[in-house]
Amino acid sequence: MILRIDNLVKHYGQVRAVDGLSLEIAHGEVLGLVGESGSGKSTVGKCVLRLTDPTAGTIELAGRDITRLSRRAMRPLRRDMHMVFQDPFSSLNPRFTIEQIVGEPLLRHKVADRRGVSERVSAMLEKVGLRPEMRSRFPHELSGGQRQRVGLARALILEPKLVVADEPVSALDVSVQASVLNLITDLQRDMGFSCLFITHDLSVVEFLADRIAVMYLGKIVESGPKAEIFAAPRHPYTQALLSAAPVADPVRQRERRRIVLGADVPSPVDPPSGCRFHTRCPLAYDACRTDEPPLTDTRSNGHPAACHLITADRIPDAAAHR
């Protein structure tokens, strides 16, 4: 395992952003962490990179507990993991040229001298599909797609073992998004890094993830191999997510049976008792309001879900929603 998160908790004051979350990522695996706004998915990424300090729980990188390492002790480990951000406009220092931005990690970890930096930056820019003359440009002279490529180049130049990508294509137009997604797939295959891919968009993880974990209000409600999740989603929330995303085919879209969720997403300051999803769940019954369902792999096929109906084996098969 490159990454093992056990019972991670992160509270910001009253806000329980992440509230007991466990997950693992194997070497070379892409895990899609899916959730809607307020689910705490971005906080997980920040905790993994220790950009924020976890409240409780443990995070292991390649078998080493990094949960409470000091910033200084973290520094050498930062060669092994990096991040790609969502906003292509705020994630690059506007005062640096592209070469400075991409070369910074090399200098920081003293893996190359000035001359070597220049060569490796050129090679990396070529890898992410940017022309060499981009090196002397400033971020604001680039389009959103080009900036995201720069962000990828910076994250990958040290050949990290783990990349945390937080909504890296959500701010991009469809046609640009397609080329960046292809690029991420290619780079991942060539370089073999593991990836925690955080997104709200199921279609994106369907394209590039190996495994998927679905988050709701700070907890994972279901996880499993991609094909399993899409073919046979087990948790009612996953089913609702899948059914709510419209497909670009009017004939099919208008015939689909959609699960309409009641009410609003509750506040993470005061999450509902019992199953956190019960206030919106169309299938909720008494036990859901009082007892919290554990994440259980009832069929022992690496596809656990946290729902009383599953443990009671009462959940309807939901494959028809897609």
Partner: peptide, 26 residues
């Protein structure tokens, strides 16, 4: 609060470097 500061932290940059090269120029 900008992501490029977070990126610098993720690079392992020290506070002095972040303040002088990332925060002050901006």
């Amino acid at each position: 609060e900008m992501d490029y500061v977070a990126a610098a932290v993720a690079d392992g940059a020290g506070d002095g470097h972040i303040i002088l090269r990332y925060v002050l120029p901006n």
